[in-house]
Amino acid sequence: MSELESLEPARAVRMYLEARQDELADWTLKSHKYRLRAFVEWCEESGVDDLTELDGRDLYEFRVWRREGNFGVEDGETPEEIAPVTLKSQLTTLRAFLRFAANIHAVPEDFYERVPLPKLSGTDDVSDSTLEPDRATDILEYLHRYHYASRRHVEFALLWETGARMGAIRGLDLRDLDLDGRTPVVRYKHRPDQGTPIKNGEKGERFNSVSDRVGTMLQAYIDGPRVDKTDEFGRKPLLTTSHGRVSASTIRQDVYVVTRPCWLNQGCPHNRDIETCEAVELNHVSTCPSSRSPHDVRKGVVTLYRREEVPRRVVSDRLDASDLVLDKHYDRRGERERAEQRRNHLPW
């Protein structure tokens, strides 16, 4: 075994993030950065200033410290235990970091194995009716690789990148997309007399930009799998079936389908037999505890924007919702996480 080389935790984390920058999606990388901040904070509190000093007992103490919700706690506040699924995500990222640290001779080669992952019960991994950003990233990557430019890919990508409501996405026509300009853009327009209203009427009309990657995928869908249909008003819908414009129930079902872990070949976190589980059947996909609705996807987008400290006005305008509504119905950050982000803006 190679001799270990001294390395500060904070510097090791920076090296890890730099090393994985080209292989992880942006949001995944940011999630890793957030989780590893907790590890660096624990190291600082515990007096660990060199990774070579870590042992199995330290990893156990960090696990307990993180589980009890000590990350980002303000003076005088009482820590609140985090959800098992959050702890598992935290420890999974730590294991990946320690594997990297072993490659640069900062910890023993098999040291990451000393971080056991918690086993989740059937409901532990079900968040408060929202879609966690990490799951959304996994779904988008799976769609990009195995179902590229399919209708389901288009639906989920637009839900996630624009945060729009399902009805607004259903109402898109081909003319509402500008994919040839410098920045790909979709336009959400209120057309109540033709069966595609949007929630806040004309006030909710807006242009939303999408990434170049999604813009390219949208064009591939239009040029390829899209069924060339017009609706009863002579409009050319973006999302179509052999019968015309896609129905709301079909979009909802498509989202239930792609948010099931088994559909992503990730097994079943609910200890169900996939061969006999009723949620595998198309008409019962919503019965999977992990499946999520389009509305849950929208809530996940809001939580992600707030977590990444996107300005409130940008979030409000992009998602066509007031700050009050966003705070009350959509933002699923915990109070501890909100406190930590507020602290980051203070001058000390």
Score class of each variant (00 low, 15 high):
M217V: 12
H270I: 03
D176K: 13
E205A: 14
D176R: 14
D176E: 14
A248F: 01
R182N: 01
G163N: 06
I198W: 10
D231E: 08
I198L: 03
G201I: 04
P237F: 07
K236A: 14
G201W: 05
S242W: 11
G167S: 15
R187E: 09
L239G: 07
Q219G: 04
R213W: 03
P269T: 05
R175Q: 07
K189Q: 14
T230P: 02
R245T: 10
L264V: 05
D173K: 08
R252L: 03
R272G: 05
V227H: 09
R170S: 00
R260Q: 15
W263I: 02
P237Y: 03
Y188K: 07
K236I: 10
D212Y: 09
D254S: 14
G234L: 10
M166Y: 00
D228Y: 01
P184I: 07
R191G: 05
I169M: 00
H270A: 14
D254N: 14
D180H: 08
S211V: 10
A168H: 08
P269Q: 01
R226D: 04
R187V: 04
L174A: 06
P261V: 00
Q219L: 13
C262I: 05
G267A: 05
G244H: 05
L238T: 07
K199D: 03
R175L: 02
Y188L: 14
V185P: 00
R175E: 13
R260D: 03
A220N: 09
V185L: 08
D178Q: 12
D193V: 05
Q194C: 01
L179T: 13
P261N: 01
R260M: 09
Y256R: 11
